[in-house]
Design a protein around this nucleic acid. Structure first.
Lengths: 148, 148
DNA sequence: TTATTTTAGTTTACATGTAAATTAGATGTC
DNA sequence: GACATCTAATTTACATGTAAACTAAAATAA
C-alpha cells in the first residue's frame, strides 16, 4: 500500500463532504417538484427509455433491486410510475412513466445545474485536468474494493 | 448560473460514486473490528479528545444530534462508549470511551489506508493540483447551498 | 422573581441503503 | 417429464440520515 504523507487530509472525508453537498444542491433543486434525488435517478432512466425492468433500473442506478423495489412502491403511490407484467418472462416487471412522471421530464437537465455550480470556480484547464484524475481515483478504488 | 458543456458527464454522479467507493473501502477495513464507518467517526473524535459532549461530536462529525443520539445508543450497547452527566449544565451529556473503545484507537489511521488507495495512481504534481480544486468546488457549492 | 426564549439532547416518523431469506418463474440435466 | 439450479423481484431486519415535535434545563427579559 502506498504511504500517504500525514499532512494530507482525509481524501475520503473531503469526497464525502463534496458529494453530500452536491446531493443537497440537487435536492434543493428538486424539492419544489416534490421528488427526491433517488426518485429523480429512476425517472431520468425512464425519460431516456421508458419500460425498463427492475434489473435494468438497478444497473442504471447502481442500486440493489431491494432498494428499488421499495422506491418504486413509493413512486407508484405518488403516481409517477406504474408496473406492468412482461409477456415472455413472468418474473420480470416493467416500469412505465405515468403522465405525471412524463410531465417532469424537463428535470432531466438537473445535473447541469449542479455541474454548473460545482465547476463555477474552475478554469477550463482545471476542468480538463480534474475529470481524468477523478476517474483514475475511481479505478484505483474499484480495483481494491470487494464490491466492484 | 454557469453553463456546463453538455458533453461533461454528471460531476455530482462521479463524486457520489467515488465517495461511496471510498466509504466501501473504509467499511471493508473496519468490518473485521466490528465497527461501522459512522461509529469510527465518533470514535476518531474521542480518540483525539475524550469526554466531548453530543453537540461537539455533532460539529466534529457534521451529523445532526438526532442521528448521533441513536448512534450513541448503539455504541453504548456495544460497549464502545458511555454517557455521563455534566455538572455545570444538566442538559449536556458527555461521551467517554470505554476500555473497549480505547482499545481500538490504532484504527485512527484508517483514513490513511483509504487515502493511499485513492491516490495510488496519481503523480505528486497531480495530488498537489487535486486538493485545492476539490476545496474550491466545495466552497462553490456551499455558497449556493441552503445548508452551509 | 417570574415569564419568555434558547439550547441540548432525545424521540418519532419517514426515506433510503445493505444483507439475507423468500417466492415464483425460467433453465438445464438426466 | 422430473428434479436441481439459477434468476427476478420482493420482503424483512437493521443501520443510517433528515425533519419536526418534545423535554428539561439554562439564559434572558420584564
Amino acid at each position: 500500500m502506498t504511504e500517504t504523507p500525514s499532512y494530507l487530509p482525509s481524501m475520503g472525508r473531503l469526497l464525502n463532504t463534496l458529494s453530500e453537498a452536491a446531493c443537497n444542491l440537487a435536492e434543493d433543486y428538486l424539492r419544489p417538484h416534490d421528488i427526491s434525488l433517488a426518485q429523480w435517478v429512476v425517472l431520468s432512466a425512464l425519460w431516456r427509455q421508458d419500460g425498463l425492468n427492475v434489473s435494468e433500473l438497478s444497473e442504471y442506478s447502481s442500486k440493489k433491486t431491494a432498494a428499488l423495489s421499495r422506491l418504486l412502491d413509493r413512486m407508484e403511490s405518488k403516481g409517477l410510475v406504474s408496473r406492468s407484467a412482461v409477456e415472455d418472462d413472468k418474473r420480470s416487471v416493467k416500469i412505465h412513466l405515468t403522465e405525471k412522471g412524463q410531465g417532469l421530464s424537463h428535470l432531466i437537465d438537473m445535473y447541469k445545474h449542479v455541474n454548473g455550480i460545482l465547476l463555477s470556480d474552475l478554469t477550463e484547464t482545471e476542468k480538463e485536468q480534474l475529470l481524468p484524475m477523478l476517474e483514475r481515483m475511481l479505478k484505483s478504488v474499484q480495483v481494491k474494493s470487494r464490491k466492484s
